[in-house]
Design a protein around this nucleic acid. Structure first.
Length: 498
RNA sequence: CGGGGAGUGGCGCAGCCCGGUAGCGCAUUCGCUUUGGGAGCGAAGGGUCGCAGGUUCAAAUCCUGUCUCCCCGACCA
């Protein structure tokens, strides 16, 4: 039995509507879902328990995929000696402007307060890691002597700091959580394969767990990671038509092996430089998740990642009714729990059902089961989907299996909906004026021909704010550059980006 | 880092122009009535007005500095 959808707009509006102010909507969703908040430290956030539970679920999924592809976790220091940073020229250039530097080791008390003790100045300053290539490659030098020591397939879960000018919760913060994989190989082919393998891990994680469709491709020289030969990426499209780089996988060539003198003796007895990769995704994915699925009622997230997948809301008047309904709810709770569903029974007595409905919607719980005396009587439940905001009456019998099935349906539907939206906001353009027009009026992804030069790329960026997000891996047809008319090997993906 | 806006009980705001010792809504606590889409009434608790200086008999209010957040720009894997 189908019921009518929820009445919208009748509730007190705590969340700014998307079309009114997208940035404010994004902040409101995070706040109402209790994912994170601003901290007293500029550019840094407090990740609240719900936000952390979401990240932990993402970690679990990714970590399993890393283990399944032969990787192990390790942990390297937060601090990097300053001299390490300068060993790889491109790398230091890329990160120099956003490094936090530790110069002193202690404070001293001064009339009621504290100040930095000038006598504690460090002989060599320490850098708070913006990424760990340098300290890891310095370490790998000692781990690698023979081809038998290769490959090294290591990942670490860590925090990093990049001193950003302008920050946004999850999307760009000065400190963020991430994973960084660092691998060492005997041959170029093996390293390239690893780079592409991990890119595909990211793609499938984005699609299968986050229900977020992505385009895979390689970055142009100007967007490449400092110190990499090639940077591959997954690019997602947000609801407001802006692109988000959601993950990167770098083929580092022998740049860090050279810089840190990491060689191995091969079967033929020759000493050779090691080939490297690194790859990472961060809490930025949470920002992408929010902006892919959520609506004006608040957070919408896929069941696979939802900290709570099903919430049961009891409805009652008297104490007797309460006892009956809660008992009914408990049995449903146990049934779902048995099936491995992350379920909660919201038995708080100080909130009315309507309040709870709104709250659980704002917090993005995929499925809600409401039960009242009528349902106990008829052996029914009311089932509500967060993604479609639709409700139906279902039989108590078999509710566990139904919920489980429905969670899978929601997971798939979210992906299909997001993919459909992404495709609708993707254009193919051959004319530069048309390109500008679409960018301003519609936004989204634009596939266009480009002559492959940094000059043209720069010009387009300056004139339109759009950047080449990537050169897609599934190559299309040849053509001519929309700006210069010179030959183009394939269309590249343009968008304004976060 | 440049331009604009803002910081006042937990949250959202008024008061500031024109100085006179802080108020409203929501939330919280207690009580009663309620409970199928954000409950009602009654009572109570909670704020050195971001922080630091200065002017003044007197500063949330005027002046200077500083920190943080939001928007736009520059910058940025």
């Amino acid at each position: 039995m189908q019921l009518k959808g929820f009445k919208k707009g009748t509730m007190a509006q705590k969340i700014t509507k998307r079309e009114e102010d997208y940035s404010q909507w994004y902040l409101d969703v995070i706040k109402e879902a209790k994912l994170a908040e601003h901290s007293p430290v500029r550019g840094c956030m407090v990740i609240r328990p719900t936000g952390m539970a979401l990240w932990e679920n993402m970690q679990k999924g990714l970590d399993q995929m890393f283990k399944d592809t032969g990787h192990e976790n390790a942990y390297f220091p937060l601090f990097i000696p300053k001299s390490f940073m300068s060993k790889e020229a491109q790398h230091v250039e890329g990160f120099a402007k956003e490094c936090a530097v530790i110069t002193h080791s202690r404070l001293k008390a001064v009339d009621g307060g504290v100040e930095v003790d000038p006598e504690s100045q460090l002989e060599e300053e320490l850098i708070v890691r913006p990424t760990s290539e340098t300290i890891i490659w310095d370490t790998y030098r000692n781990w690698i002597q023979s081809y038998r020591d290769l490959p090294i397939l290591v990942n670490q879960w860590a925090n990093v700091v990049r001193w950003e000018m302008r920050t946004r919760l999850f999307l760009r913060t000065m400190e963020f959580l991430w994973q960084e994989g660092h691998t060492a190989h005997a041959t170029k082919e093996e390293a390239v394969d690893e780079t592409l393998q991990m890119l595909d891990v990211y793609r499938s994680f984005a699609e299968d767990f986050m229900a977020m469709p992505v385009i895979t491709g390689v970055k142009t020289e100007s967007e490449r990671f400092a110190g990499a030969e090639d940077t591959y990426c997954i690019e997602a499209l947000m609801q407001d038509g802006k692109a988000l780089q959601a993950g990167t996988s770098h083929f580092l060539g022998q740049n860090f092996a050279k810089a840190f003198d990491v060689k191995f003796q091969d079967k033929d007895g020759d000493h050779k430089l090691v080939w490297a990769t690194s790859w990472g995704v961060s809490t930025r994915l949470i920002g992408g998740l929010i902006m892919t699925h959520s609506d004006d009622q608040g957070l919408v997230i896929p069941p696979k990642l939802a900290p709570t997948q099903v919430v049961i809301v009891p409805i009652y008047r008297s104490d007797e009714e309460r006892a009956t309904v809660i008992e009914y709810g408990d049995s449903i709770y146990n049934e779902l729990k048995e099936l491995g569903i992350r379920v909660k029974l919201d038995d708080r007595d100080n909130y009315k059902p309507g309040f709870k409905f709104a709250e659980h919607e704002a917090r993005g719980i995929p499925l809600r089961i409401a039960i009242g005396p009528r349902d106990v009587q008829n052996e029914n439940v009311e089932l509500a989907r967060r993604d479609t905001l639709s409700k139906s009456i279902e039989s108590r019998e078999g509710i566990g299996e139904l919920a489980k099935k429905l969670l899978e349906t929601i997971q798939n539907d979210l992906f299909e909906t997001a993919k459909k939206r992404r495709d609708e906001m993707t254009s193919f353009v051959d004319d530069y004026d048309q390109f500008k027009k679409i960018l301003d009026e519609k936004g989204g992804f634009i596939y266009a021909h480009w002559d492959g030069t940094a000059e043209t790329e720069e010009r387009i960026k300056n004139e339109t704010k759009a950047t080449i997000r990537c050169i897609p891996l599934d190559k299309g047809e040849e053509g001519t550059c929309m700006v210069t008319g010179k030959p183009s090997k394939q269309r590249v993906l343009f968008a304004r980006a976060y």
